[in-house]
Design a protein around this nucleic acid. Sequence first.
DNA 1: GGCGAGATAGAACGATCGGTCTACTTGAGT
DNA 2: ACTCAAGTAGACCGATCGTTCTATCTCGCC
Lengths: 185, 185
Amino acid sequence: MSEARARLLKAATELFYTEGIHAVGVDRVIAAAQVTRATMYRHFPSKDDLVVAYLTQADEAIRARTAAARAQDATPEDIVRAVGTHIADDIQRRGFRGCAFLNAAAEYPDPAHPVHKAVLKHRKWFLDTVTELLAAAGETHPEPAARHFVMLRDGAMAAGCLTDPKPVRDTFLAGIEGLLKYRNR
Amino acid sequence: MSEARARLLKAATELFYTEGIHAVGVDRVIAAAQVTRATMYRHFPSKDDLVVAYLTQADEAIRARTAAARAQDATPEDIVRAVGTHIADDIQRRGFRGCAFLNAAAEYPDPAHPVHKAVLKHRKWFLDTVTELLAAAGETHPEPAARHFVMLRDGAMAAGCLTDPKPVRDTFLAGIEGLLKYRNR
DNA sequence: GGCGAGATAGAACGATCGGTCTACTTGAGT
DNA sequence: ACTCAAGTAGACCGATCGTTCTATCTCGCC
């Protein structure tokens, strides 16, 4: 990846995530990245492509983080907890502004739009992954349990930047513990 | 309320909720409401005011619906269930596009913005209300339980328009039943 | 009939929007 | 030295944006 492209993606990520996608025009991304319009359009044919790239990069980071958690030498329950802890830690991170994917979906509600599609792709992977993790932890009904996990995750992501993140984080982790405690097996 | 104002609010509600706030310019609201620009600005000093009015109307509708549920002759548990059922029914409604408040917050992340403030105001009322309902249902720790309820609600709202709403609805209602079943008392 | 409230039609404003284009420069590789 | 890829500077385009404004009309009330 070229340096200009990296600067563009970094600037877009920060601005889109912090202020919203429609609220940030390409001019601001260009200025923050210190590149020219021609350079931007050389790397991304349109603003939509830049947005998709931003989401794809976020998706890849979460996948890598989740793969690392699965590769560690831990019990299946602890891997579920580790994934939960990643989310909980995000919520308390400085600059946390909710879930990039949910925020993007709110701004691009048309299911046919490439941005919306990128969101759905990420979410499918995440739900499938949590399903696998819960099955590995002995849950005999992993699909409903995973849906519950994801619901808590989505709710925690939504609320974590609208209120004090501490109780949101605690509620979320307690919910995950409840899922592990009351699992069917 | 004048007829023109009502038409404006109705048009804004449909367009903003369906397509997103930034994605819909005042021209489209004006055309859909069949009023002139002067009429729109006569009733709403700015687009932001129109957006706040849209959210305020949604807030009032939910408050009225909740008040009606509380006024019914039912056990406290059943009132909690009724509130949950409202949410579940919304999720399966034709045209469901998530939570108007969460969607608006995604587009207006600045806590000082009047739109963002309208979102927070609604959410505070909702959390307080659920806290009261759970206390009335005998929950000795109503605040954490209410946070859990709201987290499930937020998660269900977020996911209900990104995937098949049926399992989302079922997961949500099961979560509420779990809250009632495992309450502390 | 006169008045006031509320509505109409629609032009105009300055700013921003996403995207296109030209001319030129720089640096690495051959 | 030449070529090519990638970058620069920045002008330009048509469209849209949210807002302001003027002139006029309609309707209900007194």
